[in-house]
Design a binder for these strands. Sequence first.
RNA 1: GCUCCUGUAGUUUAGCUUGGACAGAACGUCGGUUUCCUAAACCGAAUAUCCCAGGUUCAAAUCCUGGCGGGGGCACCA
Length: 623
Amino acid sequence: MNILSEVLKDITLRLGLKNVEETKSYFKTQTYGYGGDFSITLALKESKLRKVPLQKIAEEIKNKLGGSNFIKKIEVVNGYVNCWYDYERITHELLKEVDNEYGKSHFGNNEKIMIEHTSVNPNKAIHIGHVRNSSIGDSLSRLLKFAGYNVVVTNYIDDTGAQVADNVVGVEFLGLPRSRPGTKIDHYLGDEVYVKVNKMYQEDPALLEKRRLVLKSIEEGNNKLAFLARDMVLEVLKAQLETLSRLGVFYDLINYESHILAYKFWATAFAQMKTIGVVKLETEGKKKGCWVFETSSPDEDKILVRSDGTVVYAGKDIAYAMWKHGLLDSDFRYKKFGVQKNNEELWTTTLDKDAEIKHPIFNHVKHSISIIDIRQSYEQAVVKEAVEKLGKGKDIKYVHYEYGVVALSPNTAKKLGMKETEEKEAFQMSGRKGIYINADDFLGKLYETILEETKSKNSDLTEKEREKVAESLAVSTLRYEMVRTDPQKIIVFDLDEALKLESKGAVYIDYTLSRMAGILRNAKLGIKNNISVPELNDSEKRVLFNILRFPDVVESAAKSLDLTVISNFLSELASDFNGFYTNTTVLKAEDSVRDFRLWLVNASKNTLINAMLMLGLVPLERM
RNA sequence: GCUCCUGUAGUUUAGCUUGGACAGAACGUCGGUUUCCUAAACCGAAUAUCCCAGGUUCAAAUCCUGGCGGGGGCACCA
């Protein structure tokens, strides 16, 4: 039973409101110093509508709510109807509810939903901007799984682009070494080859001819340059996945852009678009000879096929989106890529003949979410419009989940060798220019900082345990910072600030968990089934309040795809638990009270861990 | 030029969807708490023209209009 939703249903009924949604709009939990666990603001609206004095309506509402199941006390102040929960009664219910599955719901009805995230060019190492993408995507997929969806996660690899070609140019035509022993391949190729080649293009534009040659060879396939490109892509991809795995980010399927072409998905998609007439061939003007997609605003028609007959990026993206939603007649072939650290199989599309006959059905979803940064909004709007038109009548929803980039503070940009750092407030990272913060490097720095800190905390951990703590906290800190703020806002990253380890971040949350675990460890007693509920103090009530609302928090986060709902919840639960911890003794309380408090600690722990896992934070029971 | 996003304490921010009670935190600053389950914690103090101006409303950080500041997008690039 979801107690909060029972309370809402009851109030809806008693006040004669349309539905729970309406009730929620009058339901405020911010009560400042006026007391109460929540208040109902209905009287403020009604008073105006019915032209009846505020106080009178509020009293009426108070009377209607009298005797509600989980409500103990009601007071009217300034037209607000403030309610106090009957925590003793609620606790009796929660005793049955809270186990280590607490908060999981069937909200998603097991509906299949596809999330695409990461999708980094396979020619360089992951930087912190990419980490924002992967953290959002992975957390979202964890959240939706927890909320009862059947989630398929894909990572789309652009293996036919200029960036990959640049590395091939460097190795094949400029004599740069293919790798450097002791350096991770994605770091080497991204930091050195890619940057160097782009510098050389500027000095000698004739070199760009080589890139065109490589791109053409890759597209034709089955030749030396194409094989070299394919091998380098795979090596870099594996190196990137190592970083992501360290961050606790996993996938179900790797898709290659080249396969969209090889399987002629683009040709099929193009034919279908011609049939329903959403593309037309321009016969005059600037776009003469191009096939354009007619968007809802006429002057913004988007070129999909160039006058030389080649397809632009958006075209391939539309074909990919059609595959996702099952709008193409054919499918890829698949093979296993390997088992990931979470013990789940990762699959990949393949051109090989040795593809697996039996494989999961990845696509045919009604609902897909693509995590792609805000700079591609226009492109994505075209893809969305196209795929939803093509799937007309099939209830298809294509969501572009956009987020702001991670930019560098002037200070950090300067450190990385960027000139002219005076004028702007934030600087976009540039892989091409070599101005960015590598995820591996930054995690390493975080790790060192935290390890140092761990030593000074005179805990009785062994060296090995300390290293595990530092690693877990480094990962948790980075991931938490990436999802705790409004995704629309850019993150201005300052290296020095980031290493200062703000309190109330992931470290604070893990520390709180360690305190919970510590109590339970020291108790050496199991959690009893038969617990009598004593009179509760305020800090116990506050902790209960958080536990009580957790299922609703999960549901509203899932409904609005809003991860900050979870991060705010984590921070509040942790803070309230620390309040409880400092002013309420558990182990030294008298027996019956102790049993109840042990249950409360355990319930808090289950709730905290489940919320942490949704955001990919690593739970630590000792630190 | 057209267009999208954004603007809340010194700093990072919650609240804006659905207008309502003194705008909620955290960092930093200052002061306090350790014979007691981990002080990576807790408690207290100071700190906010909610970018500006108009409008709607009994009521605006929240909705509308206009400005200003910041960021992005507007390719036969990916």
